[in-house]
Computed example of a mutant assay.
Amino acid sequence: MSEITYVRGDATVPSVKGVKVIAHVCNDIGGWGRGFALSRRWPEPEAAYRAWHRDRAHDDFGLGAVQLVRVEPCLWVANMIGQRGIRTGSKGVPVRYEAIDTALARLADEVIALGASVHMPRIGCGLAGGTWSRIEPLITERLAKRGIRVRVYDHAEGGR
């Protein structure tokens, strides 16, 4: 079993060698939001997500789905559908823990096939409104317990 390693820094600049997957949570309405800022570094994940959503009648787009987008020779971005909409409303915050759990399980199979490590911010805890105490055990169960190296990045002002 691997552990989650917490580091200070930017998850879009993974600090290890080898094949890497940057994982983040997307909504189920096709809106590329204001959260984790991947688009400043690569346009491909946003373009792929929008095309995936546009063709949702003919593909697997929906809560719990995962889309891997290659952005560099040894670097992929995982668009994981883990939030319903983008606003808090009568059904609570947008995060959907069960969808993140499903997406992480699907991601694990892909990551193992690639021989990759996983890098992420504290997914589901920003604009999606989730709590790390609910997300961390999902990452441990779905990724770390399968031997996948996981790094969670906090900005310098943050911390565990």
Score class of each variant (00 low, 15 high):
residue 38 L to W: 05
residue 100 I to Y: 02
residue 42 W to A: 11
residue 116 A to K: 00
residue 125 C to P: 14
residue 50 R to W: 00
residue 88 T to H: 08
residue 26 C to K: 14
residue 3 E to N: 06
residue 137 P to W: 01
residue 140 T to Y: 01
residue 53 H to K: 10
residue 134 R to C: 02
residue 83 Q to K: 15
residue 156 A to R: 10
residue 130 G to Q: 11
residue 29 I to G: 08
residue 98 E to A: 08
residue 54 R to H: 12
residue 74 C to R: 11
residue 135 I to V: 12
residue 99 A to W: 02
residue 37 A to C: 04
residue 97 Y to G: 09
residue 76 W to S: 04
residue 100 I to T: 03
residue 27 N to S: 13
residue 65 A to T: 09
residue 157 E to R: 13
residue 107 L to M: 10
residue 103 A to P: 05
residue 155 H to I: 09
residue 63 L to R: 06
residue 84 R to M: 03
residue 21 V to I: 11
residue 75 L to D: 00
residue 41 R to G: 01
residue 142 R to I: 02
residue 141 E to R: 12
residue 103 A to E: 04
residue 105 A to N: 10
residue 48 A to P: 09
residue 143 L to I: 04
residue 105 A to T: 03
residue 17 K to G: 14
residue 159 G to M: 07
residue 99 A to N: 06
residue 152 V to H: 06
residue 57 A to P: 02
residue 80 M to F: 06
residue 55 D to P: 06
residue 2 S to Y: 02
residue 44 E to S: 14
residue 77 V to T: 04
residue 146 R to C: 09
residue 118 V to P: 01
residue 116 A to M: 03
residue 67 Q to L: 14
residue 6 Y to N: 03
residue 10 D to E: 08
residue 30 G to K: 07
residue 82 G to A: 10
residue 30 G to D: 10
residue 98 E to I: 00
residue 145 K to P: 06
residue 24 H to P: 10
residue 79 N to A: 08
residue 127 L to Q: 15
residue 42 W to I: 10
residue 99 A to F: 05
residue 37 A to M: 03
residue 156 A to H: 09
residue 3 E to L: 06
residue 143 L to A: 05
residue 68 L to M: 08
residue 141 E to T: 15
residue 22 I to C: 02
residue 40 R to F: 09
residue 4 I to R: 05
residue 4 I to M: 04
residue 46 E to T: 13
residue 148 I to S: 11
residue 56 R to D: 01
